[in-house]
Design a protein around this nucleic acid. Structure first.
Length: 506
RNA sequence: GGCGGCAUGGCCAAGCGGUAAGGCAGAGGAUUGCAAAUCCUUUAUCCCCAGUUCGAAUCUGGGUGCCGCCUCCA
C-alpha cells in the first residue's frame, strides 16, 4: 500500500459505507490490509445504456478512483450478461444471433463508458465465457442438496436456506402470498416452492442453447454472478455493488447460492445506488422515459457535466433528471472547470513552473479544505459535500483569473502567490481523485462536430473587428450571430481582443 | 398488503444535538458600442403535531405526502 495522501492537520473520520446488509453505516476494513476486491453488477447487453446506467457506473467509478487515491490496491470486476431473453428477442427481431446482438452492444457500452471517463474494470467476464464454472457451481449446489432438477430445469431451493431474505429484509411467508399468480404457470408447476429460482433453464424448441448434463439450456440470471465472483475474486469479497433495483431478487439470490456453495459470506459490504427519476418516476426502458448516454453526449452535454450531475446528489438517493437541472449543472461545471484550467493558462505568467507543490507544506486553511473533502468522501461517499469544497477552493482562483484578464498590475509577492499555487494544485488533486479533472481534456482543443474550421472563425472575427472599428455594429452583431448558429461563441476582451470558444447546447 | 427510503430557500442539494455548506436561478454592482462571458455583493429556521433536552433540521412518538422493491431492470 502506497503512502496515503492524508496528511491533514485535523482528525479524519474513518472510511465508512452504508451496508445494505445491515442498513447501517459501517466502518470499512478490507479483508486483506491494503487490498480491496470489488464486484459490480454489469449490464444485460441488449441495447444502448441510458442515464440510469451512467449514474451507476459513474458513482462506482468515483468509489474506485477514490479508493485508489487513498492508496488501496483495488481489483474491480464487472460482468456482461450476454445470455438473456431480451437479447434473444432482439436477435429474433433483427434476424441476427444472440452473439451478434451482445457483441454489438458490448462495443457500444465501451464506447459510452470510455466517453464518460470511466476507468475500465480490471476484468469483464461474460456469461457465455464462464459456462464451465457456472455448470460446476450448479452441480455443487445439487450435490449439497440445495438445488433440484425438474423437467430439464434446475432450481435453487430457498427452503434450504435459513438466512434467505437477509439482504432485502423479506419474510418468506408474506413473499409467498404475494408471488401468487405472478409466475408463469408452467414454471410454477415445476417448482417445489414458488420462490425457488432457476439456476438452469431448459431450452424451448428452436431456442439458442448450451449443452449441460441436464440437457440443452442456459443459465439462470443470478448464477452467473455467483460463478464469476468466485472465479475472479474468491469466495468472500470486500464490496459488492449494484443498483438498488437489484437488491431483490438478484442479489438476494446471489447470496443464497454463493453462501450455500461456499459456506462463507459472499461480500462484507453491499452498496446500492439510487435510481435516476424522471418526474418522480424511475427512468427505465419499460416505461420509455429514458435518455441514452449516447444521445446526451451527442446533444453536446459534456461527460464532466454528467459526472458532476451525478455527484451532486448522494449516491443512495433518487436523482431527478430534468433538462433544467442538467443545464444548471453544466453552468456550474464551467465555473469549476475554469478554475481547474487556471494553472494551465497562467502558470508561466505567475512563475508557478519554478515552484514545487509539497503536500506537507499546505497552509492550515488549505489543510482544512482537504480534511473537509476527505471527511465528506469517507462518510459514505458524500460527494455533494466534497464538491462544495472544490467550489470553495476554486473561488479565489476565479477572482484572480478575472484580474489577470483585466491586465491589472499585480505584485507577485503581495499576491500570496505560493498560496494560490498550492491551492490550485490541491484543487486539481482532489478533483482528480473523483475523476473530475483530466489533463488531456484541459489542454486539448474541443472536438467541434458540425462546426466551422478555425480559419473561417478567425476570418469572421477579423471582419467583425473591421466593422466594429467603422462603428458598423449592425454588421458586427450579424457576424456574431452567424457564428453562434455554429456553436461558436465570441468573448470580447480588453484591448479589442476577441476570444472564441466552442459552446454546444450545454 | 409486506419491506425499505425520502420530505431543508424559486430549483437542485449537504447537514448525523450547539445555533442552516455548495451549485443553479433571481436581485444589485463592476465591465461592455450593445451583448455574451467573467468577477464582487446578496436572499431560508428546515412538511405538520406532540415529546426528550439548557439547546433539535438533526433524537422519540403520532400524522401527512412522495418514491423504490416485492415481475426484467443500474
Amino acid at each position: 500500500m502506497k503512502e496515503t495522501p492524508l496528511n491533514t492537520n485535523s482528525k479524519l473520520i474513518p472510511l465508512s459505507f452504508t451496508n445494505t446488509l445491515t442498513r447501517k453505516k459501517e466502518i470499512f476494513v478490507p479483508i486483506i490490509p491494503g487490498k480491496i476486491s470489488i464486484y459490480c453488477c454489469g449490464v444485460t447487453v441488449y441495447d444502448l445504456c441510458h442515464l440510469g446506467h451512467a449514474r451507476s457506473y459513474i458513482v462506482w467509478d468515483v468509489l474506485r478512483r477514490y479508493l485508489l487515491w487513498l492508496g488501496y490496491e483495488v481489483r474491480f470486476v464487472q460482468n456482461f450478461t450476454d445470455i438473456d431473453d431480451k437479447i434473444l428477442n432482439k436477435a429474433f427481431k433483427e434476424g441476427s444471433t444472440m452473439q451478434e446482438v451482445s457483441s454489438k452492444n458490448i462495443a457500444a457500452f465501451h464506447k459510452d463508458m470510455d466517453a464518460l471517463g470511466i476507468l475500465r474494470p480490471d476484468s469483464m467476464p461474460r456469461a457465455t465465457k464462464c459456462l464451465d464454472s457456472i455448470r460446476d457451481l450448479i452441480s455443487e449446489l445439487q450435490d449439497k442438496g440445495v438445488a433440484y432438477e425438474s423437467h430439464g430445469d434446475v432450481y435453487f431451493s430457498i427452503s434450504s436456506c435459513s438466512e434467505y431474505g437477509k439482504l432485502s429484509g423479506r419474510d418468506l411467508t408474506t413473499q409467498q402470498k404475494n408471488a401468487d399468480g405472478r409466475i408463469e404457470k408452467h414454471e410454477e408447476e415445476r417448482k417445489r416452492n414458488v420462490l425457488d429460482f432457476a439456476l438452469w433453464k431448459s431450452a424451448k424448441p428452436g431456442e439458442a442453447s448450451f449443452p449441460s448434463s441436464w440437457g440443452p439450456g442456459r443459465p439462470g440470471w443470478h448464477i452467473e454472478c455467483s460463478a464469476m465472483v468466485r472465479e475472479e475474486l474468491g469466495e468472500t469479497i470486500d464490496i459488492h455493488l449494484g443498483g438498488s433495483d437489484l437488491v431483490f431478487p438478484h442479489h438476494e439470490n446471489e447470496i443464497a447460492q454463493s453462501e450455500a456453495a461456499n459456506d462463507k459470506e459472499l461480500a462484507h459490504f453491499w452498496l446500492h445506488n439510487g435510481m435516476v427519476n424522471v418526474k418522480g418516476q424511475k427512468m427505465s426502458k419499460s416505461i420509455g422515459n429514458f435518455k441514452t448516454i449516447r444521445s446526451l453526449l451527442e446533444s453536446g452535454v459534456s461527460p464532466m457535466t454528467l459526472r458532476m450531475f451525478v455527484l451532486q446528489a448522494h449516491y443512495r438517493k433518487p436523482l431527478d433528471f430534468t433538462d433544467e437541472s442538467l443545464l444548471a449543472t453544466s453552468t456550474g461545471w464551467k465555473g469549476l472547470n475554469s478554475a481547474l484550467n487556471f494553472g494551465n493558462i497562467y502558470s508561466k505568467l505567475l512563475e508557478w513552473n519554478k515552484m514545487n507543490f509539497v503536500q506537507d507544506e499546505l497552509e492550515d486553511k488549505l489543510k482544512n479544505s482537504k480534511s473537509r473533502f476527505v471527511n465528506s468522501m469517507n462518510d459514505d461517499l458524500n460527494t455533494s459535500g466534497a464538491l462544495s469544497v472544490l467550489f470553495e477552493l476554486s473561488k479565489p482562483l476565479r477572482s484572480l483569473a478575472k484580474k489577470l484578464e483585466l491586465n491589472e498590475q499585480l505584485d507577485l509577492n503581495k499576491l500570496e502567490n505560493f498560496s494560490l499555487f498550492s491551492r490550485w494544485n490541491l484543487l486539481v488533486e482532489l478533483a482528480s481523485s473523483i475523476g473530475l479533472y483530466n489533463e488531456d481534456d484541459a489542454t486539448s482543443t474541443p472536438l467541434m462536430a458540425n462546426s466551422l474550421k478555425e480559419e473561417q472563425i478567425e476570418k469572421a472575427i477579423l471582419e467583425r473587428k473591421v466593422a466594429k472599428n467603422n462603428k458598423d455594429f449592425q454588421k458586427a452583431d450579424k457576424i456574431r450571430d452567424f457564428l453562434k448558429t455554429h456553436d461558436i461563441e465570441l468573448l470580447d476582451k480588453k484591448d479589442g481582443i476577441t476570444h472564441w470558444r466552442y459552446e454546444p447546447r450545454s
